[in-house]
């Protein structure tokens, strides 16, 4: 879901509600202004993710406030194959029409009649994993008493053969369930609504992303 009104100049579109919550709180925590954050509205509740990027980009230009947008940042997971994931996003950008597709992550694609477009892949360019992979070191450091438990349980559950993204999601889930006594089902979306937050956004894990967003914003 995108903001009801986009004031610009920069719009971040994540895969879903988790990315939206993370990025919104990160921008706030690191005092970066000029961005608004949203994610595709899945046609049904079972799908979503980067598959919705094409639809959002296509529909975006019909909005009356499209003229306020000077740059779009697509944020997505690399999962197990960074090249395939990035190429998928490029295909969605092409299908949307109008926008120029970037040649690689973090490179800005510019065209005359559409906003600039850049893709940020998580946990970072060419690294296998997802948002949870990026967040996990900060989360485990914030809950030192639970870290050995999560690691032991992971060994016990023999997740070493799992895809990296699934491992990260499982460990984050375990950590949150153990850390949130009042609601063991607390999702990642609410990790930063709690006081103190479950994942501290001042952690060095987020410095690279923060620096990129800061420098990118300065261009507009």
């Amino acid at each position: 879901m995108l903001p009801a009104r986009i004031d610009g100049p920069c719009l971040i579109i994540g895969e879903g509600a988790h990315e939206e919550a993370f990025l919104r709180h990160l921008l706030q925590n690191r005092n970066i202004s000029g961005y608004q954050v949203g994610f595709p509205q899945p046609p049904d509740q079972s799908s979503g993710g980067r598959g919705g990027f094409g639809e959002v980009l296509s529909g975006l230009r019909v909005r009356p406030d499209f003229k306020n947008i000077r740059a779009v940042v697509l944020v997505s997971d690399n999962d197990e194959d960074p090249v395939t994931s990035f190429n998928e996003i490029k295909a969605h950008i092409t299908a949307a029409g109008g926008f120029l597709e970037p040649t690689q992550p973090l490179s800005v694609a510019q065209t005359t009649d559409h906003p600039d477009l850049v893709t940020v892949m998580l946990p970072w360019t060419d690294q296998i994993g997802c948002l949870e992979t990026l967040c996990l070191p900060a989360a485990l450091e914030a809950w030192p008493q639970l870290k050995p438990c999560v690691e032991e349980y992971s060994r016990c559950a023999d997740i070493g053969t799992w895809p990296k993204s699934k491992q990260s999601k499982m460990q984050m889930r375990c950590l949150f369930s153990a850390a949130c006594k009042t609601d063991p089902n607390t999702p990642l979306t609410y990790a930063w609504s709690r006081n103190p937050p479950l994942i501290p956004l001042g952690h060095q894990s987020f410095d690279q992303l923060t620096e990129f967003l800061h420098n990118f914003r300065a261009r507009y």
Partner: peptide, 16 residues
């Protein structure tokens, strides 16, 4: 605007 963009914008529940 194209029908495709219109359809996608409605699908995304954008204010048009």
């Amino acid at each position: 605007y194209r029908g495709k963009d219109l359809g996608n914008a409605i699908q995304q529940e954008f204010e048009l």
